[in-house]
């Protein structure tokens, strides 16, 4: 659906506030990609939306928050080298999104060059929230790097390659402190997906391996 400027401007407030979802959001972003006038209109709303956050009251975090946070930085630093391979493709994905929306970037990755033989796809949870990512090579078998860093409860999960209705166990992943990583290899096809499966057999998140 192609929206007119007036329709986009009716939705500008919700877009700027980050509460416009799904198709509505996609339609508005499509219009904005080719309408500088509406982009400027939305940008003014973005400024209001950003400033609203300044009105939230301050609050003291729990005792020990600062040292715990600084320790978390330290543990991330040790894992940085392994994450580099993932970050390369993630940066390319972020750059593409930025060029399409041209509205604002809140949390962009660094701008390394993407390795052409790699592709990164989002791992999406049952609520539609991005919970991690899967980077895979175009070789056979494909090298796979699965990373989950958000909103998945701690615990042990099966990692399954989903082809149509069939699930093939390719590994296991432990989520601890909200994070987990798995590296391995598998023979994949274009329409396959990688899913994290809980002990009860429920798929908690899934990534479609589209090349």
């Amino acid at each position: 659906m192609t929206l007119e400027c007036a329709e986009v401007r009716e939705r500008a407030a919700e877009l700027a506030l980050g509460i416009l979802d799904g198709k509505d959001r996609a339609d508005v972003l499509t219009h904005l990609s080719s309408c500088p006038s509406c982009q400027a209109f939305v940008e003014e709303h973005n400024e209001v939306a950003d400033l609203l956050l300044h009105l939230a009251p301050e609050a003291d975090p729990p005792l020990g928050f600062q040292p715990r946070t600084l320790r978390a930085f330290g543990s991330q630093q040790h894992r940085g080298r392994r994450r580099m391979f993932i970050a390369v493709a993630a940066a390319a994905a972020a750059a593409i999104i930025a060029s399409v929306t041209a509205v604002r970037i809140i949390d962009a990755d660094r701008t390394e060059q993407a390795a052409p033989a790699l592709r990164t796809v989002p791992m999406i949870g049952t609520d539609g929230v991005k919970v991690g990512r899967v980077t895979f090579s175009k070789s056979t078998p494909a090298a796979l790097a699965v990373s989950v860093d958000y909103a998945v409860p701690d615990g042990d999960y099966d990692l399954a390659l989903v082809s149509g209705n069939a699930e093939e166990l390719i590994g296991t992943m432990t989520i601890a402190d909200g994070q987990g990583e798995w590296n391995g290899a598998a023979a994949i096809n274009d329409d396959d997906a990688v899913a994290l499966v809980s002990a009860s057999g429920a798929r908690v998140c899934e990534a479609e391996l589209r090349s």
């Binding site: 956050l53 939230a56 009251p57 301050e58 609050a59 003291d60 975090p61 729990p62 928050f65 600062q66 715990r68 946070t69 978390a72 958000y150 909200g178």
Partner: peptide, 24 residues
């Protein structure tokens, strides 16, 4: 930390979840 935690707890309401959000 006070700004970030303050906003987080304003939205999520729960101190434990707010701490996770603020740290992330």
């Amino acid at each position: 930390q006070r700004r970030v935690f303050g906003l987080a707890i304003t939205i999520v309401g729960d101190p434990r979840a707010a701490e996770d959000v603020a740290q992330e």
